[in-house]
């Protein structure tokens, strides 16, 4: 037997790489954090100039706000009057705009952002959950029996969803299920996230939030269900021609075991990346849906900040959005590295 061959000498050296070391994944995360930080620094610098290029008169905006103190007003005016480089220096000392005051509401911007963050998290969480649960399953089933009846039907429907503009779908949902047209009763409220005067942490509050979130979450989920199922379907079809699935079948595994244990884990890698990247984007990207439904989240706040030319608020929101994209990018990379040993190296 060939046990004393040069190859065996080689196996000895290669085998040291056997199991993945925890240091490997740790170093990977560290590297991603550092590069994410670099992106953040760039974004912060960019953020200063971007909003100073906007047209309009912020001083006039501040004057129009009633509840702003005389001292604050004087300070803001002095800041706005200073040369750009002085303003930039002031910005560098407070890049997160921790002391920023909204030109629209006269409140500290982070209070405004904080109050609007949880509805977006609720909306985002529920729509992501719906779209992942439905989209991924539909995609797997369609791709596994490519060209079958389920595949044909689901692909037709998902393509339709994918092509539907969110705002139009939102308007239709309001028309049919919220306003009550013809035979349709008004099932769900529209506008707001909770009925006024209810504690969102009580049971009644949770029910009210759920009622208000159903329609916007559906509108938002529709396009993502379509996206996830189309991507998942394509990945499953790609995987099906892979030799290791023939191996799995030859082992005598049942078809659904081959699918669940071998095909799906490999095929889901691109979709998982996409899901996390989308979460990062949706935090800022729910603008249309939130606006159509008057859903008081960060998307609607962005719309309002732009309409009111409130550049300090815009600056804070942009920071939140870029940060969420950066953070979920890192999470996506780390999750993929945990699932795919080839990435960990």
């Amino acid at each position: 037997m060939a046990l004393t061959s040069p190859v065996d000498a080689r196996t000895g050296t290669v085998s040291s790489g056997g199991a993945t070391t925890p240091g490997g994944i740790g170093r990977f995360i560290g590297y991603r954090l550092v590069s994410g930080l670099g992106t953040l620094v760039f974004v912060l610098l960019f953020n200063f100039f971007l909003f100073r290029l906007l047209p309009g008169d912020p001083a006039a905006r501040y004057r129009a706000v009633k509840n702003i103190g005389a001292a604050d007003l004087a300070r803001i005016r002095a800041e706005l009057d200073a040369p750009v480089l002085t303003q930039f220096w002031a910005y560098l000392r407070d890049p997160l705009a921790l002391n920023g005051i909204s030109a629209w509401k006269g409140q500290p911007v982070w209070d405004l952002v904080g109050g609007r963050a949880w509805p977006t998290v609720v909306l985002l969480g529920s729509s992501t959950l719906i779209s992942v649960l439905i989209g991924v399953r539909v995609g797997i089933r369609a791709g596994w029996k490519r060209g079958g009846r389920f595949d044909k039907a689901s692909t037709a429907v998902t393509l339709l969803f994918y092509a539907t503009p969110e705002f139009w779908l939102g308007l239709m949902l309001i028309l049919l299920l919220s306003s009550g047209v013809g035979p349709f009763p008004a099932l769900f409220p529209s506008g707001g996230v909770i009925d006024s005067g209810i504690d969102p942490l009580s049971i009644d509050g949770a029910v009210s939030v759920a009622e208000h979130t159903v329609l916007p979450a559906t509108a938002l989920a529709a396009v993502y269900i379509a996206e996830y199922s189309l991507i998942m379907r394509a990945s499953i079809i790609d995987e099906q021609s892979q030799d290791y699935l023939t191996t799995a079948r030859a082992k005598g595994l049942m078809d659904h075991v081959v699918r669940r244990r071998h095909a799906v884990p490999n095929a889901s890698l691109p979709t998982i990346t996409l899901i996390f990247l989308n979460i990062g984007f949706i935090i800022g990207g729910a603008i249309t849906v939130e606006t159509v439904f008057s859903y008081p989240g960060l998307g609607l706040l962005t719309f309002e900040a732009v309409s009111e030319q409130d550049f300090v608020l815009m600056q804070a929101l942009f920071l939140v959005f870029t940060l969420s994209v950066i953070v979920f990018n890192i999470i996506a990379d780390v999750v993929i590295a945990l699932l795919d040993p080839r990435i960990r190296g």
Partner: peptide, 12 residues
């Protein structure tokens, strides 16, 4: 199988 390079599941 022919082509052992691809006949094993890459993530198991």
């Amino acid at each position: 199988f022919q082509g052992a390079l691809h006949s094993l599941n890459p993530i198991q």
